[in-house]
Write a protein that binds this DNA or RNA. Structure first.
Length: 294
DNA sequence: AATAAGCCCAACCGCTATCCG
DNA sequence: ACGGATAGCGGTTGGGCTTAT
């Protein structure tokens, strides 16, 4: 069992079904997990209520389904979201809103619950710190201007360390190219290592079927530092990034986030850096100044 | 070392959509 | 067409863990 954190169920409560049989709630035990895994391995998923009873689990079908889909299913990917995945979540959320299951479909191995938790605990937290609504245009713009470029940069760094192709070592003046992730996880080696980004924990490549015009200036014009184009070869979208971009320039574009904010907002400070952005950058945020309104 | 506060995430809840007899 | 069962979704909560005081 792939437990990221072993939870000792201290407070497993139970109640009774209408027919008088016991019904358990709360954290799942190892025994229950094993029962569920064994049953599904033998009989497959579906018909969750009868599955729960047939498997000898004193749980609702709903609970069994959730436990399987969010935790026990073999292809569940655990651990921190990669910059790659974070970028995709930001991108997809801007298009789809809180449609977590739709977003999850684009992140193989990640569950809607996990993405939802990520959004609520990390993204919304940062929005609160900036005193903006996480669904506001301003926050979206801040994401576009600061967050995404940084995630792209992180991806670039990872990419150059993962891919051993000489062409991937381009690091300064030449445009870096990569393909963002997609619902389709192509197994095997990258067909074009120099132009693809390797999946962070496998030898696979990820392709994204679509990247919207998110990487644009607030006014809608294409961002001069990041561009998005569709590959004629593989029907995938490609994000081109010109390194060493000037973040100051981006900041000028965000109403309510004056240019000087680059030195003020703690986008990559202790909090963002360690838990969210996973970057060492430390940009100081003079808290209380230039309160960002919506 | 003890306690409080905050974070994180698994699990639950309520609701809607879909399936099927 | 109808109604019950099932599946799926998004919102919320509870509690363990970590960090700060």
């Amino acid at each position: 069992m792939s437990c990221s954190k072993s939870r000792i169920p201290k407070s497993v409560s139970s109640s009774l079904y209408e027919d008088g049989t016991e019904l358990r709630r709360g954290p799942w035990t190892l025994e229950e997990d094993n029962l569920l895994i064994q049953y599904i391995t033998c009989h497959g998923e579906g018909r969750w209520n009868s599955l729960a009873k047939c498997a000898g689990l004193k749980r609702t079908g709903k609970s069994c389904r959730l436990r399987w889909l969010n935790y026990l299913k073999p292809d569940i990917k655990r651990g921190n979201l990669t910059p790659h995945e974070q970028l995709l979540i930001l991108e997809l959320h801007s298009k789809l809103g809180n449609r977590w299951s739709k977003i999850a479909q684009h992140l193989p191995g990640r569950t809607d619950n996990e993405i939802k938790n990520y959004w609520r605990t990390r993204v919304q937290k940062q929005a609160r710190q900036l005193k903006v609504d996480s669904n506001s245009k301003k926050f979206l713009e801040a994401i576009r201007m600061y967050w995404m470029p940084r995630l792209l940069e992180k991806m670039e760094q990872k990419n150059s360390s993962v891919i051993s192709s000489p062409s991937s070592s381009i690091s300064t003046l030449e445009t870096q190219k990569f393909i963002a992730p997609s619902p389709v996880l192509n197994q095997g080696p990258c067909p074009a290592p120099g132009n693809m980004i390797a999946h962070s924990d496998s030898n696979s490549c990820l392709e994204i079927p679509e990247i919207s015009g998110l990487l644009t200036h607030p006014g809608g014009q294409p961002c001069s530092k990041l561009s998005c184009s569709k590959s004629t070869q593989d029907d995938c979208y490609r994000v081109d990034m010109i390194p060493s971009y000037d973040m100051q320039e981006f900041s000028q574009d965000i109403p309510g986030l004056p240019g000087s904010h680059v030195a003020q907002v703690d986008w990559f400070g202790e909090d963002f850096g360690s838990t969210f952005w996973e970057t060492d950058d430390l940009w100081q945020f003079r808290k209380g100044e230039d309160q960002v309104g919506v």
